[in-house]
Design a binder for these strands. Sequence first.
DNA 1: TTGAAAGCGCTACCAA
DNA 2: TTGGTAGCGCTTTCAA
Lengths: 348, 348
Amino acid sequence: MRYVMVQISKTPEPALPAPRSVPTSADVARLAGVSRATVSYVLNNTSAVRISEPTRRRVQEAAKELGYVPHAAARSLRAGHSRMVLMPAPTIPVGPLYSQFINELQWALGRLDYTVVQYGTVGLHGDEAARAWAELRPVAVLVPGAGLGPQGVAVLKGSGARAVVTLGPEAVEGAHALLMDHATVGHCAGGHLFDRGRRRVGVVVPEEGGLEVFSQPRLEGVRRALDGTDATVTELSLAYEEESAARLAARWRELGLDAVFAYNDEYAMLLMRALQDVGVRVPEETAVIGADDLMLGRLLRPRLSTVHIELPSGRDLAELVDRAVRNPAAAPETHKVLGATVVHRDSS
Amino acid sequence: MRYVMVQISKTPEPALPAPRSVPTSADVARLAGVSRATVSYVLNNTSAVRISEPTRRRVQEAAKELGYVPHAAARSLRAGHSRMVLMPAPTIPVGPLYSQFINELQWALGRLDYTVVQYGTVGLHGDEAARAWAELRPVAVLVPGAGLGPQGVAVLKGSGARAVVTLGPEAVEGAHALLMDHATVGHCAGGHLFDRGRRRVGVVVPEEGGLEVFSQPRLEGVRRALDGTDATVTELSLAYEEESAARLAARWRELGLDAVFAYNDEYAMLLMRALQDVGVRVPEETAVIGADDLMLGRLLRPRLSTVHIELPSGRDLAELVDRAVRNPAAAPETHKVLGATVVHRDSS
DNA sequence: TTGAAAGCGCTACCAA
DNA sequence: TTGGTAGCGCTTTCAA
């Protein structure tokens, strides 16, 4: 059987349930039989105005019935400001450490009544990205890594951001800075290896893009730690693949190294396995140390020495943001927030 | 240990340049000596209107001079819609697999001229969260995991979202669904172990909160694979700590299992180490298989068998979103998108 | 206690 | 080719 649609009657309204438009506070007001002002008072619990209980209830019921949800853009347009804290979404896979930090931060900012939004900035760079962020008129912007210059900071502040905080290797003119100096990590590792009597130290630098922000300072930190001693530092390029590690391991003996700082625990695991596969004894022939203090290091044999990294608590950063928002005129603060300590296990 | 933020420097307070207020298109118009309409035409390259080259230049220069950045909220308020795609920010550390998926997705949506925003939803649950998202009036919402009910979908659609897509275990009324059925993963693993002749199969279920969404279906999948056979399934609770693994390993022999599906590669590594430490031979006495096909599995000895998981391409999802946005009346699509295949190595 | 109305920044329609 | 202007949804001052 074929069902044929037959037009029964022609009403001024469309036959299909009209694409119901989104209810506004005016709709709520109409349904409740009050003015839009009253709706606003009720739904925002405005304390400066007393609304009678019956009216209040009528408004609330009308709002619920219509499924009314306030329009954030309209609200913040009217208010002239928002409580949005914007950060660019990370573009590289991020470890459990940093994930937890972000979570804490979101939670803490949430408690202070801010809304955290991670903006998917792919392909945008530098000031272009800053402009895109500025269009959202966030009250504060948190930028991990490098990549934001003084220009970008100026754009953001010029468009009303009351606080710009960078989390990265160096402070940026005009912005608060949480200095996460990864050179400290390398410095720790280098010092440790030296103390253990090692003098020919390799440092793994990942070939993967986007990691230079961390790897270069870590390398530099090792250099600084061993500067002025009789120890040497050798940069070792390594991709996160078994083949790459095997190639490196194959020429290990001719490199003549007695220790290696492997960028982090994962690269350390990769390299250590390759070394063991070609018969290099760890730690006797070559000491290995990683970084990040991941669980996996404890599960390796020999157990992996590592550099434990301590990030600031999300709560602390949230408070910094809040302080800065409340007093945007205050001079930018700069904090060193990256703690690094060696966890000595069996591989070094 | 708690690391305390140390303030390094406080740069002297700069002479306050009068709290310059944020420039609007009206300011640009004034400076360029044209109307606001013209400014809008120029800056948006409105093709329906031809603006003379000199005027165009004057406007652009004025905009640059003032550091003008358009106000996204005002724009989308006026337009009646935005191009914002919202997704809740993940609250649990997310592996490289999923990270890459998100990145691809952001990139692909960016190419289609959408803006992806991850909303920091901590502490908000279910419909409460949906309402918070709805306030931003996103054109589309992508929700990983469970937690969004039909109510929530209704709230979002009722507030103008033209597409709601869930990425999770089951479809939700009114929303498009990308079914990521983790039971498939367990089913794969269970089938593999059975084929290898194992009959007493343990399944690790992480104690960590927030993982039930994945762990329960994976367990269920193993059950389904072995249902109707002579094999047994034993649920094994395990926290991601060495102690927990050691306790489990200590009573391993009395459990009498000959195989274990360890939830994922990381838990597999943890358990395998503990088993080896108490002398249980892998795979002879107990076969071990993980999931996610992480690099670390290849580095273990014996090499870890695993279930390789295939996620949809970000591009595909982006296209689904775009299609749905363009035609919101279309019936919700449901796709099975989680591919699972066993990678057989040496541990099983 | 409630309502009328202005105006946040922007775009698009209609006139000039 | 350009300008005037209405109005998106909301809050808030001022009046009633």
